[in-house]
Nucleic acid binder design. Structure first.
Lengths: 128, 128
DNA sequence: CTGAATCCTTACTGATACTG
DNA sequence: CAGTATCAGTAAGGATTCAG
């Protein structure tokens, strides 16, 4: 997920990669979830709901989501300024596959946790 | 997703986060895809197929996938050593939601690309 | 062949301070 | 309120070298 800027040739032009390069970072999914739950939200509200995100990361994340067309940004020329964020139709449509992923995660979470707990570092190849 | 080690309180105990923290990195999905396509593969074959992955990252990725129970590792005590990797049943099951994500990505890839191309940096709040 | 260990470079992230 | 700019710490990724 997080993923880094440089992409590998193998991964190039892979839509899944392209998506995860953007949405697989630390905050994007969180923002999408919060926006789905909250509807249209102001910057400060988003900041308060996620609470441990920095101003910088929230702004950066929103910019990217907006740039990709998943989130809309509406500026109201008032004093004080008021900027509202919401999911676009494409943003909503993305939640569907995300739910599929979530379902798998919930379903297999315990199994994964157990696998991790039971895991022992492998022996060298010749030790067996 | 590359996602980073430290997780935020908000994200804690979120299965989706937990999954993406592991699988959202730069190589995990690639390895899963290659293993799905190739069946049981040796380390060197995986290395050759992905070709631009470093030895270090491949080993690390395989370790984590094995640890999470998505990939199995079979060591053959031969000379030279031979280690074979394959998807576990859970590994296969994960491909299903992954397909869902892939379908979305393929379907909306062009739309996202256009959104990016059309994007112009927003004005300051008061400029509007 | 299949890794592990080390070093080094790069990129992400958060804190802080500042602007419209 | 809603950001941007700068700075510094940390973590990820690659190259190289060595080992079982």
């Amino acid at each position: 997920m997080s993923l880094h800027k440089s992409r590998a040739p193998y991964a190039d032009r892979c839509p899944v990669r392209d998506v995860l390069d953007r949405l697989g970072d630390r905050w994007s999914l969180l923002v999408l979830f919060v926006l789905e739950e909250g509807g249209t939200l102001r910057f400060s509200v988003l900041k308060a709901r996620i609470d441990d995100i920095s101003q910088r990361m929230l702004a950066q994340t929103l910019r990217r989501l907006e740039q990709d067309g998943l989130v809309s940004r509406a500026v109201h020329a008032t004093v004080p300024p008021k900027v509202e964020y919401a999911l676009t139709p494409m943003g909503f449509s993305f939640l569907k596959p995300l739910r599929s992923l979530e379902a798998w995660a919930v379903e297999h979470h315990e199994q994964v946790r157990q696998a991790r707990a039971a895991y022992v570092a492998p022996q060298r190849a010749e030790a067996l």
